[in-house]
Design a protein around this nucleic acid. Structure first.
Lengths: 352, 352
DNA sequence: ACGCGTTACTAACGCGCGTTAGTGTCCCTC
DNA sequence: GAGGGACACTAACGCGCGTTAGTAACGCGT
């Protein structure tokens, strides 16, 4: 005879109790009165049979899936370059585990693919939406349905709890570091197109620093990159036509990596000719040549905080409208004071 | 009155049919005879009500969860450095989507954490286990239970279908590239400890190339790194004590990144003094200074192939014991012939 | 006129759990 | 020694689907 997987009924029979008692014991149901001996009998029986509750049955009866969804809306190149996704996922998973939840990941194209079904089919109890675009229509619909959603990143127009860093302040601090070193003509290369809130915010932080130093913000010094090193190289190439440029704030380490390649190719050195500040502090940043000064993003904690907030939301607890995690400017060797007038004269005009 | 989510009964009522018919229509059940008009009525009703089947109910009734599990056994530093996980996940998701499956990710510590429950609770229909260690005991137990598992990577001792590249052949090709350039003293830095099959295999490929060229394999030239750039830097530091060394095969781009840092710090240049070949072809490899010659790993396709194999296994179709995907040696600028005797004499003895 | 196959459906059950409403027993109190 | 409450449990239902076995109507051949 075929031996099928044990069910709670089998455990109940072996322990000489009802399935109700089995359920009470295994779920540590508060308010249920179970004698220690009965409790132990049930536990022993479950152990002896190798009993594991059937997830779908639990979920159906209990009305929740015990699954958190992570929606990652990214173009393929963006996925490939996103060194931090794995960390965020690990943080989210850690949060989920505290509540015996698991994490389902839904990677979607930038335009195609829908995630609304995840929640409507009750396949997940809630969603963390990572780095959404400003024009994501699906989000609005979900929230109107009252679905538990947490934004990782920011989306100012929508009334959804979010977990993020203060991009503007961090970018401002990074730029101020360059200003403090004496730089006066500082470029800015974004991490992404301005459809992404983070790209705007970091640019705004840069702008605040520039204007705060009494300089005029120059739109020509701001170039848009899109996620990958290649776009950073292109942007930097154009920026280098400004021969008075002595520093760049690049709002993504990966993009900065490309920018540094462009600087090398132009026969210039970092930081002697051009100082570079990045953003993200990807694991490889410390091994760049030279090691990259950058803004540390607490990727793991962002994932964890988003997960915690989502679980709170699912369980009807109060959730802060906005959780802001601290960043830190990590000063390495890609930043230094600008070349002195003498040095610039000695080295002759910059190649353009 | 509170409006609750529609169920198949509601759709049935609106369409004037039974829930059986609703089920038949929505699942395109083969062999079911449904007239086109009835069919359309059901579809319209479902649409009008915004009906979405309840995932847990489907899963319970249907006996499957429609979820694929991805088990990632990694230490934190390994996760952080694993630039390819996101790609693999995307590939796996793409495969899952073809069968209306979703992907649940379970990131586990190197030693702690268990994933067996994932399958025993029927929370997932099958698992892709990524980069397992040789000593993973849980895997054996799972397979004895007859659980659908696909290894991404290789685990020679266990009889589990796997999807991988030919690590040895790729490493051999990489090393042969160095030999063809004229290098005779070539170091090897592994990607991971030898508990990982891939680390062994890549080392073996290196060895085959060395011996195939009529040279003697020297164990002192082989150093173990563990996933991150820091370990690569340390290993390279030790390797540089061999002043006759002119090239290294590093079995991971991230580790190679650290190795290149060590070479720079020793006042040497890549490839002029030391040629470097990597492994993985992470997205940033092309932007290294100099751009890294490396073995391209088809990360997306590996994920996709693993997913397809797992779906086959779940559906009782035949699965190849081993799927091997092609790699390609990408020659960039980190490799060149060794310095000539004259140049070495001119430059003087190498700093050690 | 009858039988037989095909088409188009449906009633009812079962998946394996969680939960509600209840039953019985024991002990303590006045 | 009757009442009441805490304690330790259980019967039975319901979650929302998929599926099996079955029915009714209809056409078609002889």
């Amino acid at each position: 005879m075929h031996q099928s997987r044990p069910k709670s009924k089998d455990v109940a029979a072996m322990a000489g109790v009802s399935t109700t008692t089995v359920s009470f014991v295994l779920n540590d149901r508060v308010g249920a009165a179970i004698s220690p001996t009965t409790r132990q009998r049930v536990l022993d029986a479950a152990d002896a049979l190798g009993y594991h509750p059937h997830a779908s049955a639990r979920n159906l009866a209990g009305g929740r899936s015990h699954i958190l969804g992570l929606v990652v809306r990214q173009s393929p190149e963006q996925v490939a370059e996103d060194a931090l996704l794995a960390e965020t996922l690990r943080g989210l998973s850690a949060a989920a585990r505290t509540a015996r939840y698991r994490v389902l990941v839904e990677p979607l194209g930038i335009r195609d693919g829908t995630y609304r079904d995840l929640i409507r089919s009750r396949g997940t109890d809630g969603l963390v939406v990572s780095g959404p675009r400003l024009d994501d229509a699906e989000l609005g619909a979900l929230v109107r349905d009252g679905a538990p959603v947490i934004i990782q990143g920011s989306l100012p127009d929508l009334d959804i709890p979010s977990v993020d860093v203060d991009n503007a302040a961090a970018a401002q601090a990074a730029t101020e570091h360059l200003l403090a070193l004496g730089h006066r003509v500082i470029g800015c290369i974004t991490n992404a197109p301005f459809d992404y809130a983070a790209a705007r915010e970091r640019r705004d932080g840069y702008r605040r620093a520039i204007e705060g130093a009494g300089l005029t913000y120059d739109d020509n010094l701001v170039l848009e990159a899109k996620f990958d090193a290649a776009s950073g190289r292109r942007a930097m190439g154009r920026l280098l036509q400004r021969t008075d440029l002595t520093a760049v704030f690049v709002a993504s380490d990966v993009v900065a990596f490309g920018a540094m390649a462009a600087i090398r190719e132009a026969g210039l050195r970092v930081p002697d000719d051009i100082a570079v500040v990045g953003f993200d502090d990807i694991p490889l940043a410390a091994y760049f040549d030279p090691p990259l000064t950058t803004v540390h993003l607490p990727a793991h904690d962002l994932g964890r905080a988003a997960g915690m907030a989502l679980l709170d939301r699912i369980n009807g607890r109060a959730v802060a409208a906005r959780t802001v995690l601290p960043t830190a400017l990590i000063i390495r060797s890609s930043t230094a004071p600008p070349p002195t007038a003498e040095r610039r004269a000695r080295d002759g005009p910059r190649p353009s």
